[in-house]
Design a protein around this nucleic acid. Sequence first.
DNA 1: AGCGGTCAAGTTGAT
DNA 2: ATCAACTTGACCGCT
Length: 296
Amino acid sequence: MKRIRFGLCCLFISEPIKFKTIRYSYFSKLSKQEQIEKIDKTILWNLDSLEKALLFCRNNGIGCFRITSTFLPLFTHPKIKYDIKDLPHYKEIKTKFSKNKIFSKSNNIRLTLHPDQFTVLSSPKPEVIKNSINNLMYHAYLSNLLDVDVINIHIGGAYGEKKSAIKRFEKNFRILPSDIKDKLTIENDDIIYTPSDLLPLFQKYNIPLVYDVHHHRCNPDEMSINEASVKAYRTWNREPVFHISSAKNDSLQKSHSDYIKTEDFPTIWKKMAPLTVEVEAKSKELAVLDLIKKIY
DNA sequence: AGCGGTCAAGTTGAT
DNA sequence: ATCAACTTGACCGCT
């Protein structure tokens, strides 16, 4: 029987593997030369960290890794414009990108991206839409450097009326470049958009649904977990991605707990492989390994 | 070395 | 009104 592919999200808690970023307030005080060097150094560091992360995943049976959005630091900051071609170690950077890409491919480690909360295609504010599309273009660019096949986002706010917010999302989705559209997926969230709200976007535009079962429990609709799992599964033209997490303190709290409780893992998922399940838990790689042990 | 304040960006609900 | 939560604390400046 085929096994589920489990995914680790961005960070490690126990392994000495860290990704770096740069803060604009500090960056802006540097000279032009120092700025270039700082970006160059940070990207090289992140590429080395990714290499370690992928090695850890391979050695520990973790089949998917989500890459942090700050991998190329400050890339989408409105006051900064840089091209990796202009960096002092461009050749080395390029080589490291392709090394990581080949390693993940040959070891069957899937890579995903999850743009942060500032990416909102349903906003009524043109400035927010502009920034969101810019941010998605960055993620598409990064996804090409590393062969990422999933760029997953939420719909965003409701602004008092879900229906018109979804309409704005659709309008903005339609104008996206196709290399973003081909990888973009949407996820049900814990307060506003349920799987039922999002399935029509698959029917209209073939947008796959990343089914988050914890969010579905916090923010339910008329569908059962089994029904939502099956329907979400069918929205995918590639291996589906689902999310698992456990609530902290047993309550229907939003924040994630350290580990995943066995009873929170839908039993039907075990019969659904091939399937990627990204594990969202504070204890990171320890939680993924713990869950794999519990499930298999 | 350790600690506290701060960080580009959106939106919501709890307090 | 403030703040934590969200895929994630990390980073800088001060002591």
